[in-house]
Write a protein that binds this DNA or RNA. Structure first.
Lengths: 216, 216
DNA sequence: TTATAAATTTAGATAAGTCTAAATTTTTTA
DNA sequence: TAAAAAATTTAGACTTATCTAAATTTATAA
């Protein structure tokens, strides 16, 4: 149907579209670790297949059919991540690369049965929503910890940065999905924050606070 | 490490090596659904990587390192087939194509954990032995039903033909892995065989008898 | 608003894996 | 054992996805 490279482009366009109306060539080149000229070539190909809307120099958006393909890849990625953590006992910082390969396994029947086998999970190990077999998913309204004030509380529900380093840091601090936190203090000097979590005080930098997502 | 095409060639060479000392270009072309000239090109590449022993016009054998790669792919293929049947409830005739994709997922850690998750199975859904994490597996000594005589018994332990059509036929006749059979009669005219299985009489053609494997 | 910088596209090249057609080697057979 | 047939390899071309370098377009700034 679509090649591996095409799938990766569509997925990347989808992810970059979250923050902007249209996605630029350079953004894609940076995310896909390739050159702008290679991106241009692929964009023409995807436009020919009517998976994206592409006007030279003006960036791209996904068409309805392109978005469907992208969401399906993301569904597969997140379900496999869930499988790796819940069934094979991997840690949340270990599963991304494996899921990057597994998301390209083509069978829809397989992924639907995997979904059923695991009890139709709604969120992956990083708190990201898992699209159902129709491509529908909850967009829950998360805020970075940095966006709330002293004496406010929240539940950790996701991360903005998905890097191994950040996930390992959070794991070590036990700042994991589902934990309740209370903001005790914001240090004026560097805007780092002191939280209470399970009766412990934890100080996190502004950088961390910006990348840790909570629901109120 | 190795490309998808390289992995498929090594796997094919391994499978064809079971029946002969060396594997020919045309055998590979037929099995891989490609042309002899394409095979020659790839054989040169694999020889450069010291995964096969190749002398022009003389066919190929796997080197120790090529065999290790091939066995590892087969391990992954069979473990995923087992997973699909035992965990996701697919039928034994449905899993081959999916496992053809899944066998290329690279992580060794993943496959070893999958193996553990399933309790270290020794045989896949078609009765083929699953190599362990060191590449070792039981070669049990199976015979085609056609090779035994009247009044002899055996346990169905494998198939020679792995085609969907043959597997579906066996399923319908309930001639599945683990069943006990007794040879009641061999029809002289076409050498078809009449078996007793779970108090039922079943007649199978010579063709079927040649492709159904039992242990005595 | 024109010059400069940045972003993007085009042109031409490369590597992997495949193909067809022609050439070569091996095997078979008369 | 020489001619014919079969198997295999070589030569040259194509596609996909990539690259560098040059050209073009858009954005920015004096």
């Amino acid at each position: 149907m679509n090649t591996l490279a095409e799938e990766n482009y569509l997925k990347s366009i989808y992810h970059l579209s979250v923050n902007a109306a249209s996605v630029t060539t350079n953004q894609l080149a940076a995310l896909l670790n390739t050159k702008a000229s290679s991106v241009t070539d692929m964009l023409k190909k995807l436009a020919d297949k009517e998976l994206i809307n592409y006007t030279p120099y003006q960036g791209v958006t996904l068409t309805a059919s392109g978005e469907k393909v992208a969401v399906n890849i993301i569904r597969k990625h997140r379900l496999w991540e869930y499988f790796l953590v819940e069934k094979l006992n991997f840690k949340w910082d270990q599963v991304h690369e494996m899921a990057e390969e597994m998301e390209h396994i083509s069978s829809t029947e397989l992924i639907d049965r995997l979904d059923k086998f695991m009890g139709y999970p709604k969120y992956d190990p990083h708190g990201d929503p898992i699209p159902d077999c129709n491509g529908l998913f909850n967009i829950h309204n998360l805020k970075p910890v940095a966006a709330i004030g002293v004496n406010e509380t929240g539940v950790i529900c996701g991360v903005r940065d998905h890097s191994k380093e950040f996930l390992q840091y959070l794991e070590k601090q036990e700042l994991t999905i589902g934990k309740n936190i209370l903001i005790l203090e914001v240090i004026e000097f560097d805007r780092s924050m002191i939280l209470e979590m399970e009766n412990k005080k934890i100080q996190i930098s502004r950088e961390v606070a910006n990348n840790l997502l909570i629901s109120l």
